[in-house]
Computed example of a mutant assay.
Amino acid sequence: MAVAFAGLIGVAVCERVSQRAGWPAAWFVLTAGLLSAEVFQETGNVMPWALVQFGGMALVLTLALATPMRKSVGLKLGWIIFFYVLAKGFEMADHQIYEFTQQTVSGHTLKHLTASFAGLPVVFALRKLEMRWQAALRHNPGAAAVAA
Rank of each mutant, 00 (worst) to 15 (best):
residue 3 V to C: 02
residue 4 A to P: 04
residue 5 F to T: 00
residue 6 A to W: 02
residue 8 L to A: 02
residue 11 V to S: 03
residue 11 V to H: 04
residue 12 A to N: 05
residue 12 A to C: 05
residue 14 C to F: 01
residue 14 C to Q: 07
residue 18 S to F: 03
residue 21 A to F: 06
residue 21 A to Y: 07
residue 30 L to Q: 10
residue 30 L to S: 07
residue 38 E to T: 08
residue 41 Q to H: 10
residue 41 Q to M: 10
residue 42 E to W: 07
residue 42 E to Q: 14
residue 44 G to F: 07
residue 46 V to P: 00
residue 54 F to N: 09
residue 61 L to S: 11
residue 66 A to I: 00
residue 67 T to K: 13
residue 71 K to N: 09
residue 71 K to Q: 08
residue 80 I to G: 01
residue 81 I to N: 07
residue 85 V to T: 12
residue 87 A to K: 05
residue 89 G to D: 03
residue 92 M to N: 08
residue 95 H to G: 01
residue 95 H to F: 06
residue 97 I to C: 00
residue 97 I to P: 03
residue 97 I to H: 00
residue 99 E to W: 00
residue 99 E to N: 04
residue 100 F to D: 10
residue 107 G to I: 01
residue 111 K to L: 13
residue 112 H to K: 02
residue 112 H to L: 08
residue 112 H to F: 04
residue 115 A to H: 08
residue 117 F to C: 15
residue 118 A to I: 09
residue 119 G to E: 07
residue 121 P to M: 12
residue 121 P to Q: 12
residue 127 R to S: 13
residue 127 R to T: 11
residue 133 W to F: 14
residue 133 W to N: 11
residue 134 Q to R: 13
residue 135 A to Y: 08
residue 138 R to C: 01
residue 138 R to D: 11
residue 142 G to Q: 09
residue 143 A to D: 04
residue 145 A to Y: 01
residue 145 A to M: 11
residue 148 A to R: 09
